[in-house]
């Protein structure tokens, strides 16, 4: 990234002093960070650390106590079309009477006026998004008849059809098959090559270093944020996962080794 023109540079997402609570219990306290453009960024932390809550707070889906979130230096309302949100798969009513193409077309609704119907162009964009995620042959299928991975790809296609520049995804890799995992990685590469930014809640420490450029460690407050090589350290993992680390010792070992291997590979 070229920082020489830092005067005109505005981060795609800047969070300042964000605090949130749920049922009067603090979930997140004073979280601040700023992410670089054109990178893949993972939000990592143990269960109940407030990862999804952070994403929802950023999108204004749950109220925050205080804090300022800006998108490309502006408020969310001005950057709605440029920001695509992919909710967790469990939050979706998969029995809803709707087919795959119609779900993807919802990505175009923000571009349409109240009374407007999707145009041929909107349909072309939606169909291309389905092709990109290798879901073309399922376009007439009811969403209830899809596998978990296919459902995830439909929702990613919906986000893609929005033609946003910033993508916020809640656990896109959770419980998906290998084909879908591959499709998501391909999608990340594509989006990155177009200079787009991707922020994901991620739970798999084994893959985080491989799939992402940047990590934000969260456990009720911000632990660390920065490029993978800098922040994926035993110390940060200890701080983030605390007492639960006994389970993680093997993982960190493994991760160290894979980091080392990678370092050797690039030598």
């Amino acid at each position: 990234m070229n920082r020489s023109n830092s005067n005109t540079y505005t981060s795609p997402l800047s969070v300042q002093h964000l605090s949130m609570r749920y049922h009067h219990k603090p979930v997140l306290t004073d979280v601040s960070f700023e992410i670089p453009e054109g990178k893949t960024i993972a939000i990592v932390g143990p269960n109940g650390a407030g990862k999804s809550t952070l994403l929802k707070g950023i999108m204004g889906l749950e109220p925050s106590i205080e804090g300022l979130v800006s998108f490309f230096g502006e408020s969310l309302d001005k950057k709605r079309q440029a920001t695509a949100y992919v909710p967790q798969r469990e939050e979706i009513d998969w029995d809803f009477p709707i087919n795959v193409l119609d779900v993807v077309l919802m990505g175009r609704h923000g571009h349409l006026k109240l009374w407007q119907r999707p145009s041929q162009l909107d349909i072309d964009i939606a169909e291309q998004a389905l092709k990109d995620l290798k879901m073309w042959e399922f376009k007439e299928r009811q969403i209830s008849q899809l596998s978990g991975g296919q459902q995830q790809r439909v929702f990613l296609a919906r986000a893609l059809a929005q033609q946003a520049t910033l993508y916020l995804m809640d656990e896109p890799f959770a419980g998906v098959d290998v084909a879908t995992e591959q499709a998501i990685i391909e999608l990340f590469k594509d989006l990155k090559s177009q200079g787009k930014t991707i922020v994901c809640v991620h739970h798999d420490l084994n893959t985080v270093g491989e799939y992402f450029d940047w990590i934000i460690f969260i456990n009720a407050r911000l632990i660390a944020a920065g490029p993978v090589v800098e922040v994926l350290t035993k110390e940060n993992l200890n701080k983030t996962y605390g007492g639960r680390l006994s389970l993680l010792n093997d993982l960190t070992e493994q991760m160290y080794r894979s980091q080392l291997n990678k370092a050797h590979d690039t030598d």
Binding site: M59, L61, D77, R80, P87, I98, V103, G110, Q162
Partner: peptide, 22 residues
């Protein structure tokens, strides 16, 4: 008839609709 698409998105997924600015 007029607000069919809005009503559809909101019925399907309220927080998604919210994220789209509805």
């Amino acid at each position: 008839i007029i607000s069919f698409n809005r009503l559809k998105t909101i019925a399907f997924h309220p927080s998604l609709a919210l994220s789209l600015g509805i």
